[in-house]
Design a protein around this nucleic acid. Sequence first.
DNA 1: TATGAATGAGTGTTCATTCAT
DNA 2: AATGAATGAACACTCATTCAT
Lengths: 205, 205, 205, 205
Amino acid sequence: MTTGNKHLPKLQREQQIISAADRVLGEVGAHDFTIDKMLSHLDVAKGTIYKYYKRKDDVLAELSVKALQVLLNYFKAAEQKENDPLTALQEMIMAFYRYYLKYPKYFELIIYMERPDFKSDIQSYLNISLEMKNYFTNHLIKCQSAGLIKPHLDPSYCTYLIWGSCMGLMNFIEAKKVFIEEIIKLKKKDLLKTYAEIIVSGMKA
Amino acid sequence: MTTGNKHLPKLQREQQIISAADRVLGEVGAHDFTIDKMLSHLDVAKGTIYKYYKRKDDVLAELSVKALQVLLNYFKAAEQKENDPLTALQEMIMAFYRYYLKYPKYFELIIYMERPDFKSDIQSYLNISLEMKNYFTNHLIKCQSAGLIKPHLDPSYCTYLIWGSCMGLMNFIEAKKVFIEEIIKLKKKDLLKTYAEIIVSGMKA
Amino acid sequence: MTTGNKHLPKLQREQQIISAADRVLGEVGAHDFTIDKMLSHLDVAKGTIYKYYKRKDDVLAELSVKALQVLLNYFKAAEQKENDPLTALQEMIMAFYRYYLKYPKYFELIIYMERPDFKSDIQSYLNISLEMKNYFTNHLIKCQSAGLIKPHLDPSYCTYLIWGSCMGLMNFIEAKKVFIEEIIKLKKKDLLKTYAEIIVSGMKA
Amino acid sequence: MTTGNKHLPKLQREQQIISAADRVLGEVGAHDFTIDKMLSHLDVAKGTIYKYYKRKDDVLAELSVKALQVLLNYFKAAEQKENDPLTALQEMIMAFYRYYLKYPKYFELIIYMERPDFKSDIQSYLNISLEMKNYFTNHLIKCQSAGLIKPHLDPSYCTYLIWGSCMGLMNFIEAKKVFIEEIIKLKKKDLLKTYAEIIVSGMKA
DNA sequence: TATGAATGAGTGTTCATTCAT
DNA sequence: AATGAATGAACACTCATTCAT
């Protein structure tokens, strides 16, 4: 109200809004995320947010684009670090884990969106989803072409399968709900490593 | 209010309460579950519920005991149906899927509880969790003793790993959020089957 | 919050709430009626209101019961004042007008509810509606039995017809929208009288 | 934004705006009419609308000019179809009903404006109101001159009276609120016919 | 003259939990 | 032990109107 930031260019305003959303996410997580909480980080009225994003879930979807881009970069980095495609695959799965350690709230957000009643039309969200899916699938195809993966496995299926199960595994670790007593003693990293090893070895030709 | 069931023994009261919770869960699912909705199925006042369960989440936790017991039975049935321990393992994983088909609301409940901010101290919940974990782990130990599973794999780790990843995979299928476009074409059952195949094959000695 | 009026008997609470609603209606009318505005007249939290009435419209419906009862009494008084049934009928129509003069906000409320998107299940509202309709219709039947009204006219139809048209006429007078310029010069009472005269004379055998 | 229609003559702009309003009315009705919804049908910015019309209600008032013109034409057609002035009068009343059937949203608009808190100074609206009033009144004067209508009835009064009561009757039919139970069984057209018959017969000399 | 981004008070509704009786 | 009335903070979303450019 003081900085005189009326009539910013559209893109800049969007960044401002998403950046505020980002801060709120960092503070309270996806489950307690509130439009009202954004306001304290923002020189902008509530109505303005709704001018840019039709629903609260759209804000979250847009924010998740950021989150997914970072994750995609983790995948890419993992792939490029390794020469052997299968080791790379394993590293890509471990990238999930490193990502989760570094950006737990982004991770929570992605999980949060994975609910049947989550609604959003944000196109960029669909785009990045697809891009990531393709990236992962392409890697699997390369593995398969090289004869490293069982030929009867469908790469798309495998992508979904790895994505869903890996996401779930980390959520499980995070939630620590079922099996509470013992899980603490576990070393999370080892668990993930074992998972990656089993998955990759299970797919190996 | 008329049946004259005041001062019932504690256990019976608890069963009454949980049975009402069960009905509400069946009607509206975990996300829309409210204490108020229980009242119409109950001869007991709201305050009384809070006498027996400190928080709403405790009611849900207690209810999940029921849900987990059913799931455990699914595991047991799957194990006993098959002679070969590895085939049995695969079937146990598929049992997750059959369970999800038959009791979608129980499944939703279990997923719902798998959140960091879910709070509960219910002991019976911890018990059944442990029982299930042990059952699964024991099966893995048997496999390992029979030399069917890689000797270096920790059976406990594998249990957590399968539980978490499998739960997550099914949640992912249900939510159909990321990768929306394509997931529809997938056959859920095939996806699960592939998953089970990969996991088991990945663990095989 | 000070008067220590917790745990009032249900009926008394309801009266308290409706009485607050009544005051708000008197102050701002039906169109600007707000649950929030009730609070300043009430020693009761917002949630409490919703315990007694599921929706805002239910509060209004309950309030309209009061309004319709008063109107019904006006009808009864008018009927009893006159010996001749047809003069009585005319007086009953004029009673609408007197009611409107005395309780303009009640009148506004009744009109307000006469909208397709108004929703309410309040039973007492349906009851008083029916009672009023029956009262009016019975009077018409009496007229008809006495050979004073054209025999082919359906008394129910006539009730609806008089209710709807009379309501509308007064609303028109109140709104002064179309024909704004001239309507002011009109004497409202004469207009109503003429209406009553025409209607009754048009129904006369 | 591309058609290059900047700086159009005032009249053309106004037509453009009202035509957009017309479309919105047709789509969502008077109660859900918003200025924002007009924009998608318009090559003009929101601020511009406010340059031409001071308030939202002014837009609606201007739009109602269109609506009232159509209604006036219905009256004219009804009058010319019949030779006998009284039959014509009856037909003019029925024209209300046909109009309501054909243009329900226009009808809703007219009713919507018939509220005390509706504000507008639009001159053309006052003009068409007056024109319609005069047209109707003149017909009544003709009837009276021909000795068909009671000589003591004031034609102006009768016009207002018919307009208001008829409007209200149809609104009542539409709303179906009071007396909900039975109104369904009624045939709307018969109700209107009876109304017209009573009114005309009540005015007859 | 035209723009369109920004405003922000307002509104109905929910529900876990408390606590006086 | 049982009751159930009361609480009240929370929240998503709307839209007529303004005004700096």
